[in-house]
Design a protein around this nucleic acid. Structure first.
Length: 521
DNA sequence: AAAAAAT
């Protein structure tokens, strides 16, 4: 089956070919013919299945047949996150390049004026997050009475994020007679209900049964004693794994921020992505990651779903996700389109319950454990002779003399393409780490231990001490934070020095509500 | 234990 067989126009086919694709993915194969026929479609598909193109390609054709650049938008695509919306917009640009369609991206966090300009010129496609779309609507800047195609992407996530009321409101503003496509990775009852309400006699297409991970992803866990002991094994993995690029997932925005600072300081090639960053900063980080200017992306679940970043070789779950399904979404960032990938999760004893839920979701089989992370090369860390004798002089923890990761980094059992990717993009931080840590460790006298494997305990103990030293002093004058925080901090300290509480930066035109709150404290 | 989204 090729794209030609799906009934797409020559213009779209040419753009698809230009983009380097010749074979549709299963979801594209199943959905595109129905969409072209004007049918409603209920699509059950995970990310990474080519879902976006399964609606953008036929939409371009349908819209191109009508009056292009009409005064009112003829289609609307709703997504839960801004990044996803941007990604879909890129998709339209890529595949619509031989079709004169215009679009507007209506998302929060950026100025209204550009969006309004686009709307005034007239657009065929609206790609929006719910809040900003409603905002435009209430300002009377957008009319939805001519929307003939509605796409709801990542419906289950919309549900999680409490967008269903907004979505229903938006749907009520659209013509009853329209084509609706609804995509969701999972089909909880609420989504079923929504589908019954929004769709008419839909064609159901589904690929890859929910709650399974791509079979090309190698999934591993690393047991760590506690929260504090996570960073070291992570850094070891970052250095030793054959990482082309990787995403490090954390549960909290704060964890992302602090881990980012720590890893940055340690000389790693990292960027941060979470919802408290300005949209500009989010865009810049994401662009840098996509362009391989950043090797590791530390992110909350804002990056968990839908983001289509090519060739992510590794996903690190620094935290076990709070909802087991998020595990599937997170590791879905790697092993996309049949490529191989690796997902490694750090698990503390406190995470046991959450981890069990992930295992249950995956079918009950515990993940393969990686246990030799802390082992240093014997030559670098000579063991105390006494202890070694007590341990029987044997290599600890089985026969392996060096970590599997290292063997793989040398290309041992990797698919050829991954090795090539590695060669093409040599790891930046293979260079010796900054000197700070080794110096600190020198202060420690070698310590002998009872029964546990020598090298392991040595390394862990040393790390604990280093961490303690580093973490006690409050995050001292942080070198360089996310760009948007700086002005804020500067402003607040400035205000502290002033006599009165008059808000700064408004000149004579201080909004009344600000004066009021200043007086009442 | 959280994140995301309009301001």
């Amino acid at each position: 089956m090729t794209f030609e067989d799906l009934g797409l126009s020559a213009e779209v086919l040419r753009a698809v070919t230009d983009a380097g694709y010749n074979q549709p993915t299963p979801i594209q194969e199943k959905a595109i013919p129905w969409v072209l026929q004007g049918r409603d479609v209920l699509g059950c598909a995970q990310t990474g299945t080519g879902k976006t193109a399964s609606f953008t390609l036929p939409m371009i054709d349908i819209l191109a047949q009508g009056r292009v650049r009409a005064r009112m938008p003829r289609s609307l695509i709703m997504t839960p996150t801004r990044e996803l919306a941007q990604q879909i917009a890129e998709n339209f640009n890529t595949y619509g390049k031989y079709t004169p369609l215009s679009m507007a991206l209506l998302i929060g966090g950026v100025s209204f004026s550009d969006q309004e300009k686009a709307l005034d010129k007239g657009v065929d496609v609206l790609i929006a997050t719910p809040g900003r779309l409603l905002d435009h609507f209430e300002r009377g800047r957008v009319l939805l009475t001519d929307v003939r195609i509605l796409v709801v992407d990542e419906a289950d996530r919309m549900l999680d994020m409490g967008f269903i009321p907004d979505l229903e409101r938006i749907a009520s503003l659209l013509p009853q007679i329209r084509q609706t496509l609804l995509f969701s990775a999972t089909m909880p009852p609420e989504i079923r209900r929504l589908a019954d309400k929004f769709l008419m006699n839909p064609k159901e297409v589904s690929v890859a049964p929910q709650s399974t991970a791509a079979s090309t992803v190698r999934q591993l866990v690393v047991q760590v004693p506690n929260e504090r002991a996570k960073r070291r094994p992570l850094e070891t993995l970052m250095r030793n794994e054959p990482v082309g690029n990787g995403i490090i997932f954390c549960n909290r925005k704060r964890t992302v921020a602090t881990l980012y600072e720590a890893l940055k300081r340690a000389g790693h090639d990292v960027g941060a992505l979470h919802g408290d960053m300005t949209q500009d900063a989010r865009n810049e980080t994401l662009a840098a990651f996509r362009d391989n200017r950043i090797k590791f992306l530390i992110a909350t679940d804002v990056a968990g779903r839908g983001l289509d970043i090519e060739h992510v070789s590794h996903v690190f779950n620094y935290d076990v996700p709070l909802a087991a399904e998020d595990y599937i979404h997170r590791i879905g960032r790697t092993g996309r389109a049949g490529r191989s990938g690796t997902a490694i999760m750090l698990v503390t004893p406190e995470d046991k319950k959450l981890y069990d839920r992930v295992v249950a979701l995956l079918g009950g089989k515990p993940l393969e454990e990686l246990s030799d992370l802390s082992v240093k090369a014997p030559a670098e860390a000579p063991a105390d002779a006494e202890t070694e004798a007590a341990a029987g002089g044997r290599t600890p923890r089985g026969a392996r003399t060096r970590p599997r990761r290292r063997r793989e980094a040398e290309g041992a059992d990797l698919p050829a393409e991954d090795v090539q990717a590695e060669e093409a993009a040599p790891a930046v931080d293979d260079a010796p780490a900054p000197a700070a840590k080794p110096e600190r460790r020198k202060r420690r006298a070698p310590r002998s231990v009872e029964s546990r494997p020598v090298e392991v305990v040595e390394a862990e103990a040393a790390v604990d001490e280093v961490e303690a030293v580093e973490e006690v002093p409050a995050p001292a004058p942080e070198p360089r934070r996310a760009a948007e925080r700086k002005p804020e901090r500067a402003r607040s300290s400035e205000r502290r020095q002033r006599e009165d509480d008059t808000p700064l930066g408004f000149g004579k035109d201080i909004p009344a509500f600000m004066l009021k709150s200043a007086r009442t404290g």
